[in-house]
Computed example of a mutant assay.
Amino acid sequence: MRAGAVGAGALALALALGGCLPGGPQPGPGPDGTATATGAAPSPSPVPVPPPPAGEPMDEPKEAVTGAPVPVWDETSRVQARRVSEDAVRAWARPDLPAARWFDELSVFLTPTARRDYQWLQPSSILARKVTAEPEVVDEPSVYLARVDVATDAGTVQVLLSRQDGPTAWLVERIVPPEGQA
């Protein structure tokens, strides 16, 4: 009987010490937040993993999200992009206007995000006062985006444009003054 008691005691001691070794069960919170003797936490529920994408990499959509026709890059689009850029820079390059009037007249050319950004700009910080040459479309990364350079008396201003679909007009996302200017 004594040998059985020693064997049971040795087994209990081995199990108790096993919890102290690295990699063994550690005391920790149980499912209800209270400490458990073994520290064994319930195994996490499996997180669903989306299947890998099938097909080709994403290209320009075949249909616009709005249900309207997808825009195309053609001469009409370029003319519209140049016109909106020039009109927006003319509205932007008026540092002598009171801020409220300046913003009201500029905001008709801006996207909602640009309106939030430009509402705080002080027109007196703008060095340009007039457009000095015809705008030039310099980048067409997508049928939804364009970059137009507009020459002013203070240097070339970059105008970033976007549109939602074919019939939607170009809107200004950002007017980037010449380097070193506000």
Rank of each mutant, 00 (worst) to 15 (best):
A40C: 10
Y144C: 07
V148I: 12
K62F: 09
S142R: 01
G166H: 02
T152C: 09
P48T: 10
E136S: 11
A14Q: 02
T156A: 14
R2K: 03
D165P: 05
G7E: 12
P51N: 04
V138D: 02
A16G: 10
Q122S: 08
G55P: 12
P50Y: 09
D139S: 14
Q158E: 14
Y118F: 15
E140S: 14
P48H: 05
P95G: 15
G30C: 11
D59I: 03
D153W: 08
V84E: 07
M58H: 05
A154G: 08
D104Y: 05
A3F: 13
A68E: 15
T156P: 04
P71R: 01
P52Y: 08
A81V: 00
A10F: 08
G18A: 14
S43N: 06
A12C: 11
L127E: 08
G9V: 11
P141R: 02
L97A: 07
G4R: 02
E134K: 07
V49T: 15
K62S: 12
K62G: 11
V47Q: 15
Q158T: 13
V72S: 13
W73Q: 01
S162A: 14
A93L: 09
A54R: 13
V49E: 13
V138A: 05
D165L: 04
A8V: 07
D117F: 13
I126A: 03
P51V: 04
S125Y: 10
T168K: 00
C20L: 15
P51C: 05
D96C: 01
Q164Y: 04
V148S: 12
A16K: 01
D59W: 02
P52D: 12
P31W: 13
V79Y: 04
V49K: 08
A10W: 04
A99I: 00
G180S: 07
S107W: 04
